[in-house]
Computed example of a mutant assay.
Amino acid sequence: MSAPTQPALRTMKAITQHRYGGLDTLEHETVARPVPAKDEVLIRVQGASINAADWLLIQGEPFVARLAFGIRRPMVSTRGRDVAGVIEAVGDNVRGFSVGDEVYAEVDAGSFADYTVAKSKRLAHKPSRISFAEAAAVPIAATTALQGMRDVAKIKPGDTVLINGASGGVGCFAVQLAKAYGADVTGVCSTANLEFVRSLGANHVIDYTGEDFTAGEARYDVIFDLVGNRPLAECRRALTRRGTLVLASGNGGRVLGPIRRMLAAMLLDMFVTQKLRALAAVASGADLEVLRELIEAGTITPPVDRSYPLAETPEAIRYFVEERVKGKITITIQNNTKEQHQ
């Protein structure tokens, strides 16, 4: 008697990585489709986007991050964290979401693929007025900007706000959110991106190639530092006496990365009148709902510089790392005809 036939393993295409290094470590291969846990949903991916954290994880830097992601090699091989797509299956404990819902979320890993799983508490319904690619540009970058502006800086109408790195993924949302909160916004960026930052609503723009924002006479109630290329003392000089410096990045070498600068700021904060705050954004479905409402109202719009098909993800990351990106770089999945490679 022949052996019983085993059910076929469900597979998918994904961008994977089995060792740390450069873009040559990325592979476009066939892997097993993930299965959602009781508090998760399975998403058929329509869009994903690239963040600085993706590039750092590919390199395995800073080394301290390997304590969470794998010491010698990535514990989870599929890359990508931002996702927008359609729910294919729902875990037993999930409430408020159903098969067929269009959603977006931040996942632990795995959005550069045909399918991924997301925890329901990190999930929100996709804004109806934007495409999947645009929705995929939102989760990490816009949540970071929202939590930085609203929760850490506590911006109020009339505040003067400077955003260092205003044309990048987080910066493009930070400019729009600060304007929505009634602030007077100054964006710092390269010459090539000045008009783009103005188009986001910035009241003033500074070209960092010709002007040092820390050396002028202007003083700001809030500095949102997304670059981390200036010493704390220089940033403080550009703040008002009781202003707030929000740090979301920083130099610090291959071992600790931005953590060293953030720890220094937290220590100094105890001895000065200014507020020096490190931002560690947290994935939140509730905040994605807030952002959905702002997007539906037209208050903020996800700017997409370019979109690439899944197989060209390494090239998309190369562009992200080497070029002066305006907003976000997205990945489109499953040949969605509305979102072609630009």
Rank of each mutant, 00 (worst) to 15 (best):
G60C: 10
A278F: 09
I140A: 05
I71W: 14
R198E: 07
N336Y: 09
S120K: 14
R95W: 04
A32L: 14
A137M: 03
R219M: 02
T25H: 07
T186S: 06
V107L: 14
V138L: 11
R324C: 08
E134S: 12
G70F: 10
I317V: 11
T160N: 06
R81L: 09
A48T: 05
G47Y: 03
I331R: 00
F224K: 06
A153N: 05
R260L: 10
N251L: 15
A280E: 02
R277N: 02
I15V: 12
A280T: 13
F69A: 15
F69R: 11
S98I: 07
I331G: 01
A265H: 03
S190I: 05
I317A: 06
I317K: 02
L239I: 03
K275A: 13
Y181C: 04
D82Q: 11
R44C: 08
A37T: 01
E234D: 09
I130W: 08
I259L: 15
G60D: 01
G96E: 01
A178L: 11
T273Y: 07
R261Q: 15
M266A: 15
T143S: 14
F173A: 08
A89G: 07
A265C: 04
F112G: 02
H18N: 13
I58Q: 04
V222G: 10
L57Q: 12
R236P: 01
R230M: 01
E106R: 15
R95M: 12
S128C: 08
N51M: 04
S249R: 00
S249Q: 09
A137F: 00
V255C: 03
N336V: 07
L294F: 09
A3F: 12
E322K: 14
N336W: 02
R219K: 15
A174Q: 01
T186A: 04
V76P: 01
G257Q: 03
G250M: 00
N335F: 10
S199A: 10
G250Q: 08
H125C: 13
K156C: 03
A118Q: 05
I155C: 15
R72I: 07
I295V: 15
H18A: 11
L291E: 00
S128M: 06
K38T: 11
A183W: 07
A166H: 02
D221V: 09
V205F: 14
V31G: 00
D159I: 07
G187A: 08
A136F: 02
V185A: 11
D114A: 11
A141I: 11
T240S: 06
L9E: 12
T143A: 10
N193D: 05
L245S: 06
H125R: 15
Q342N: 11
V325R: 01
P309L: 09
L123T: 06
A105Y: 02
A8H: 10
M262V: 07
G169M: 04
L194G: 06
N93Q: 13
H125S: 13
Q46I: 08
A142K: 03
L279Y: 07
S128H: 10
A248Q: 04
D54C: 12
N335G: 10
D225P: 00
G85T: 09
V227I: 07
T214N: 03
R306Q: 08
D212S: 10
Y181E: 07
R242G: 13
L294A: 13
R150T: 09
Q147P: 01
E211R: 12
G91W: 00
